[in-house]
């Protein structure tokens, strides 16, 4: 078996707010292998986001070791961690975190502007358009975030996370602000990416969304309490078809009143 992309060993994270110590993550050990698609579930406040931020190198653990592709992240300086975020990690936030008043295209181009290797303007544009194509938003490249729906904004954020072809895509409640149909669409995007070999870790507190993943971790009080593969995995494209069929049926049943 190939070595894991991510190896967490006894990761702890303690927040100190005033007098109070909050133990958000209390010793998590975890291996994530190439091609995995993991859902992290758990109640609010159980430490899911803290874990994700650690995985995404957005935050540093209080103790424990985190090996990303065999490299100990704790040994890296700020700049090297920034380069990791830019090159190996793609992060999708619950709140999208797009730059306001900036077109979808420019938002997606952003990681390339901070890439080590200089990317020409035309190359940047081409790759950004390709990423938008993957999430089905190529026609909306010129739109500002304020002109896009929540689902579309989330897909722009996914395109941005994808554009530098990361090893690991991290998404913290990517469907938290979306309706169920849009959520399934986003899961469809993730499933397609996963099939192409991108390792994905996402947080959700909806069991039916977790059913689109391959492995579910349940976190409680900063500890992993369950870790099991998904039985009866859902396929987004099929579920979408069913949803559309149901919608059509609903329209049919209301049709006699309209047609009369």
């Amino acid at each position: 078996m190939s070595s894991p992309v991510v190896q967490l060993r006894d990761i702890r994270r303690t927040y100190i707010s005033g007098e109070l110590e909050v133990h958000a993550v209390r010793g998590i050990s975890l291996d994530i292998h190439v091609g995995e698609f993991i859902a992290i579930m758990g109640a609010s406040g159980s430490g899911k986001s803290t874990l994700m931020n650690t995985l995404g190198c957005l935050d540093r653990p209080t103790s424990g070791t985190y090996l990303l592709d065999g490299v100990n992240v704790a040994d890296l300086d700020r700049e090297a961690r920034a380069d990791l975020r830019n090159q190996k990690l793609g992060f999708v936030f619950q709140g999208f975190n797009l730059l306001p008043r900036t077109s979808a295209l420019e938002n997606v181009e952003l990681p390339m502007l901070y890439a080590h290797r200089r990317v020409s303007a035309s190359e940047m544009r081409r790759r950004a358009m390709a990423a938008l194509e993957i999430v089905g938003l190529a026609q909306r490249a010129d739109h500002l975030p304020s002109q896009l729906s929540g689902g579309q904004q989330q897909r722009v954020a996914i395109a941005r996370a994808l554009v530098n072809e990361p090893r690991l895509l991290l998404a913290d409640e990517p469907t938290g602000n979306l309706d169920s149909k849009t959520s399934v669409e986003v899961m469809g995007v993730f499933q397609r990416l996963n099939e192409q070999g991108i390792t994905i870790v996402m947080v959700t507190h909806e069991l039916d969304i977790a059913q689109y993943c391959k492995r579910i971790l349940v976190v409680r009080d900063g500890l992993v309490v369950r870790d099991e593969p998904v039985a009866g995995r859902l396929i987004a494209s099929e579920e979408l078809k069913k949803l559309l069929g149901a919608e059509a049926a609903a329209q049919l049943t209301s049709a006699p009143f309209g047609a009369k």
Binding site: E79, A82, D83, R85, L99, Y114
Partner: peptide
């Protein structure tokens, strides 16, 4: 405030301090 959030986004995406 707005700009600090913007800086957060940029840092998250891989900007260095000096960028």
């Amino acid at each position: 405030t707005e700009r600090t959030r913007e800086i957060g986004i940029r840092l998250a995406i891989g900007a260095h301090d000096r960028d």
